[in-house]
């Protein structure tokens, strides 16, 4: 799966919370692998440009490695706020409004290409329709 791709070519992962080596992280960024992770089609021409720009950006932001952070600082301003799971709205109230925004629908369902595929099954060969799940 794409998720296992290491976005940095042939360099060992830096130690957790340790100082990342500027050379290793800035020179070998595999933009194509990042694009795959981000589900983003990027042309070869743009890829060449990004392979120059992204290491420059990362090199700049790496200056934070010079800050010593001794203890884990809590973030009281950033916290999850949960609400009680109660008072639901009437079922179907917003369905039509939300469905209208979908690029492709079948009845009250959003239609997508088949997500899971089985290899070489006869049924699939007979029935190539993959628009619904």
């Amino acid at each position: 799966m794409a998720d296992k791709i290491d976005p940095v070519r042939s360099s060992p992962p830096p130690r957790p919370s340790g100082r990342a080596s500027a050379g290793a992280t800035s020179n070998g960024v595999d933009v194509r692998a990042l694009a795959q992770l981000a589900r983003l089609e990027v042309s070869d021409e743009e890829l060449a440009k990004l392979e120059r720009e992204i290491p420059d950006i990362l090199k700049f932001v790496e200056t934070i490695q010079n800050v010593s952070v001794e203890t884990e600082i809590s973030s009281p301003e950033l916290r999850n706020v949960m609400r009680a799971d109660e008072n639901p709205h009437e079922g179907g109230m917003y369905t039509e409004a939300l469905m209208k925004a979908a690029p492709s629908r079948v009845g009250n369902r959003i239609a997508v290409k088949q997500v899971l595929t089985r290899k070489n099954t006869k049924s699939e060969a007979r029935n190539p329709k993959k628009y619904e799940i």
Binding site: L34, V42, L50, I64
Partner: peptide, 28 residues
């Protein structure tokens, strides 16, 4: 696209500590 790719990098396994988590700590 550029920012999505940078964001994907700083959150990717192996780099999230050195970039994203470190940045959060410095932010504090």
């Amino acid at each position: 696209r550029r920012r999505i790719l940078v964001g994907t990098f700083v959150l990717s396994s192996g780099y999230v500590d050195a970039y994203y988590r470190k940045a959060r700590a410095v932010r504090e």
